[in-house]
Design a protein around this nucleic acid. Structure first.
Length: 597
RNA sequence: GCCGACGUAGCUCAGUAGGUAGAGCACAUCAUUGGUAAUGAUGAGGUCACCGGUUCAAUCCCGGUCGUCGGCUCCA
């Protein structure tokens, strides 16, 4: 799935993690295999930074079991057993694993025998399977592994969860144990430190701490944006509006509820129904639904008039409220919600405009992400030969166009073969935040199908009616998720233009309140988001509070400031920078308030 | 939806081998008029998520519901 080539060091870490997964499985077997009920192993691959092993265990494992498991793991590491690879025949493997009642391994072996693609990653050669032994532990595995268990001494178990065998919810639910492993103590320490830091800046925690948003059981999966969070939300929305308007987009507002017939035309009723909130008619049958996407509405608008090639590209921007009925278990903070808005747009273009339109969109993406200091990479998903709709030549041309767009834009990209939606190839953009974590944000999807389903046409220069292509694109992604990402990216310390409170004016004693009010009014007149802290409290306490709120500027006002008509300025990143003329201080804030994408 | 863990004051968290609960912060009142991360005193705050069951007695044990968290699946 990932076509990037691993570096030598990454490859070594993968081997360590893969081997540590074996060691962990062995430890779990030692602990939980009680003769009657065996631990049945499924799969245990390395992943980025971590590894896991899926297994069926006699009783659920909890984090309380970790110390004991780790203890057993350490003993095995200390024994410094070699990892020995052996090639077994299918019969040999079958016999061995069936004696030990390892039904998942047997299923994998059968899969290998039948050349089932899902099993290929587990271990194969032409006439048999590959197994690895380390001490008393033997596992079906194609490797590669480290040479000896001692190379796996820097690990830590992290969490447990459920996982379905073969990712199929109709199959057995297994226990998955996640851990991390590294080649040196320092790497492990750094990684654990990073996890701790990530926890500290978790947007759910900061959202509460900074009074940005909240959720309530009365509307699970929907966000209550508090005054401070709403400022950020509106700011992002306003910036997007302005940016797109300048790029020739037309903003529209469209209904939330539509008759079922629309969803049938768009295909959502068939493909997306489970994720939709629907409303019944008098008979109790679903008859309408809340929109999970804006596209059908925009199709109606396009179709409502006779369009000419001169109108294209025709771009409709919509920040409408979307609802998707996610299963309860999937909901999480701002990243996975049932109600959200996107900076959504649908661009209707002629096929020959695909490349240029993508160039423009990528230009926008660049400008937006640069503003937030978010580096990004892109992934191009191409046609799945078994599952696509439309004409192969159109697809080929479109894919070529997208690839050359990426190249011409000097973008770091990968190709994800056969991963496109059936209606068209797509580009996904992943940003990397300040902790080096990746999140999917922007998505740009070509769509050959909706224009077909809605029978959209435009009058071409020739006078013939031709079919436009639709580009779905959302560059923040959803406002909710994007705000979640930047909360963590900035660790809550928003740049001045986004900060809900940009400046706190604070008095050293009540005697200076009237000048402080003057200062506050002046800032307000400049549209600076200012709060006056004139409480009967010590200045240290006021500063402490404003710091905890991560306010970028504090103006401190005491006797000296009143006398000289100045303010003492304290900057979030620099601390106390001393007294200055009020006008100078205001200028400094204003310089940071007006940013353009 | 599924597996597991969790749900105690606005927040962060203690606690009870079953006898209706406690701290710090926040909040209120009073005193204090203070110069760059916490002035002091006093006070108010809880049907221990909700609904049932067991028990003389349930925040604690059992069952269910809702929600949250870690994942699976999916995706903005």
């Amino acid at each position: 799935m990932n076509t990037r080539v691993l570096t030598e060091q990454e490859e070594y870490l993968y081997r360590i993690r893969h081997s540590t997964a074996h060691i962990m499985a062995y430890a779990v077997q030692q602990l939980f295999d009680d003769g009657e009920k065996v631990v049945r192993l499924a799969i245990g691959p390395p992943i980025d930074n971590e590894f896991y092993y899926d297994m069926e265990v006699p009783r659920p494992i909890t984090p309380d079991d970790f110390p004991e498991i780790e203890k057993h793991m350490k003993a095995l590491v200390k024994a410094n057993e070699p990892f020995l690879q052996e090639d077994w025949t299918f019969d040999q493997a079958h016999e061995w694993f069936s004696e030990r009642n390892q039904k998942f391994k047997l299923e994998l072996i059968d899969g290998l025998l039948n050349r089932d693609i899902d099993s290929l990653s587990e271990g194969i050669s032409d006439d048999g399977v590959s197994v690895y032994r380390s001490g008393d532990f033997t596992d079906l595995c194609k490797g590669p592994h480290v040479e000896k268990t001692r190379e796996c001494r820097h690990f830590k178990l992290l969490r447990v969860s459920g996982a379905y065998w073969r990712a199929d919810q109709n199959r057995e639910q297994l226990q998955r144990i996640y851990g991390t492993a590294w080649s040196t103590k320092g790497e492990l320490r750094d990684y654990l430190r990073m996890l701790k830091e990530a926890e500290k800046r978790d947007h759910r925690r900061l959202g509460k701490q900074l009074d940005l948003f909240q959720t309530h059981p009365e509307s699970a999966g929907a966000v209550f944006w508090l005054p401070k969070g709403t400022i950020i939300y509106n700011k992002l929305a306003e910036k997007a509006r302005k940016l797109y308007q300048n790029e020739g987009y037309h903003e529209v507002r469209t209904p939330l509820i539509y008759d079922k017939s629309l969803w049938e035309t768009s295909g959502h009723w068939e493909h997306f129904r489970d994720d939709m909130f629907t409303f019944p008619n008098e008979l109790g049958d679903p008859a309408s639904g809340l929109k999970p996407m804006n596209c059908p509405a925009h199709m109606l608008i396009f179709k409502s008039k006779r369009r000419s090639y001169r109108d294209l590209p025709y771009r409709l921007h919509d920040q409408g409220v979307l609802h998707r009925n996610e299963v309860t278990g999937a909901l999480s903070g701002l990243t996975r919600v049932r109600q959200f808005c996107q900076d959504d747009a649908h661009n209707f273009v002629m096929p020959e405009q695909i490349e240029e339109e993508h160039n423009r969109i990528i230009g926008l993406i660049r400008r937006i992400y640069k503003t937030f200091d978010l580096p990004f990479r892109s992934v191009l998903s191409t046609r799945n030969p078994d599952h696509f709709m439309g004409d192969t030549t159109v697809w080929d041309e479109a894919e070529c166009a997208l690839e050359s767009v990426l190249e011409n834009n000097d973008l770091d990209f990968e190709i994800n073969p056969a991963d496109a939606a059936f209606y068209g190839p797509k580009l996904d953009f992943y940003v990397k935040d300040s902790l080096n974590r990746e999140f999917q944000c922007a998505t740009v999807q070509l769509d050959f199908q909706l224009p077909e389903r809605f029978d959209l046409t435009y009058a071409a220069a020739s006078g013939n009616m031709e079919r436009p292509v639709v580009i779905h694109r959302a560059l923040y992604g959803s406002f909710e998720r994007f705000i979640g990402i930047i909360i963590e990216h900035y660790a809550g310390a928003f740049p001045t233009w986004l900060a809900p409170v940009q400046c706190v004016v604070m008095t050293i004693s009540e005697r200076f309140v009237s000048y402080a009010k003057e200062v506050r009014n002046l800032l307000e007149a400049q549209q600076i988001r200012v709060v006056l802290d004139d409480r009967d409290d010590k200045i240290g306490a006021k500063i402490r509070e404003a710091r905890l709120e991560l306010v970028p500027y504090m103006f401190i006002i005491g006797e000296r400031e009143v006398e000289n008509r100045t303010v003492s300025v304290r900057v979030r990143e620099e601390g106390d920078i001393g007294a200055m003329d009020l006008s100078v201080a205001v200028e400094r804030i204003l310089a940071e308030v007006d940013i353009d994408f």
